[in-house]
Amino acid sequence: MMESILFYCFATVAVGTSFILVSMRNIARALFLFFVVLFAMAGLYVFALADFVALTQILIYVGGVLVLLLFAFMLSNKELLNQLQAGTSHFFALPVWQALTVALLFLGVLLYAALQFDRHEPQWIAAAREAGTVITPTDRTVQHLGIHLMTRYLLPFEVISVLLMMALMGAAHLARKGGQT
């Protein structure tokens, strides 16, 4: 029962935040909503028994790409960043309460999941173990992913890294150019 509730919560957060994200005009807030979408998608990957993909999603997209996008945004758009700081001048501003609510909800879900997992194994993991669909460390999945990433998919991997580096260099150039005038 709780697994279904968590799944629908993750799905609702992912879809609802995606709709808000694409309709938002403020780029800084859209980037933070993108952060929430990526975490919700990682939660959905866990329910699909794709733990490696979920961890990769968090480490690479949230930890790398999103931080790079925020860094590039903060270097390139100083006026919009000043507007964001001016909009929340006191503690009881609406974005502070929204952030506090989301943080407390995440804390509650994490605490509940940790307590439930200590008591008994979730039903979907037990069902996967009985069906024989659990990936074991002897399957060498990570090794196969590494081989494919460095052989078959090397060109797309390098193109994406060059594209991200160009975005960072462009943001740094715009920030330096804005400081000289």
Results as ranks from 00 to 15, higher is better:
residue 66 L to S: 05
residue 94 L to F: 13
residue 75 L to R: 14
residue 113 A to T: 15
residue 82 N to D: 10
residue 9 C to M: 08
residue 145 L to Q: 04
residue 10 F to K: 00
residue 102 V to T: 04
residue 45 Y to L: 12
residue 19 F to H: 05
residue 55 L to Y: 15
residue 78 K to Q: 13
residue 132 G to F: 03
residue 110 L to R: 05
residue 129 R to Q: 14
residue 133 T to F: 06
residue 169 M to N: 02
residue 162 V to A: 12
residue 84 L to T: 11
residue 40 A to T: 04
residue 116 Q to I: 09
residue 28 A to W: 02
residue 149 L to T: 13
residue 20 I to P: 01
residue 27 I to W: 05
residue 32 F to N: 11
residue 37 V to D: 09
residue 114 A to L: 06
residue 176 R to D: 03
residue 121 E to A: 09
residue 140 R to M: 12
residue 163 L to Y: 15
residue 118 D to A: 12
residue 16 G to P: 01
residue 16 G to N: 01
residue 89 S to C: 01
residue 126 A to I: 05
residue 100 L to R: 14
residue 147 I to F: 07
residue 98 Q to T: 10
residue 7 F to W: 04
residue 173 H to A: 13
residue 67 V to C: 09
residue 13 V to N: 00
residue 71 F to A: 09
residue 146 G to Y: 11
residue 42 A to W: 01
residue 83 Q to L: 13
residue 48 A to R: 13
residue 14 A to G: 05
residue 172 A to D: 02
residue 57 Q to R: 06
residue 88 T to C: 04
residue 114 A to P: 01
residue 63 G to D: 13
residue 68 L to W: 01
residue 66 L to Y: 12
residue 18 S to T: 15
residue 168 L to V: 14
residue 117 F to W: 14
residue 35 F to S: 10
residue 119 R to G: 15
residue 10 F to N: 08
residue 172 A to W: 03
residue 145 L to R: 05
residue 138 T to G: 09
residue 143 Q to M: 08
residue 87 G to F: 12
residue 20 I to K: 02
residue 120 H to S: 12
residue 96 V to I: 08
residue 36 V to W: 10
residue 79 E to P: 03
residue 62 V to I: 09
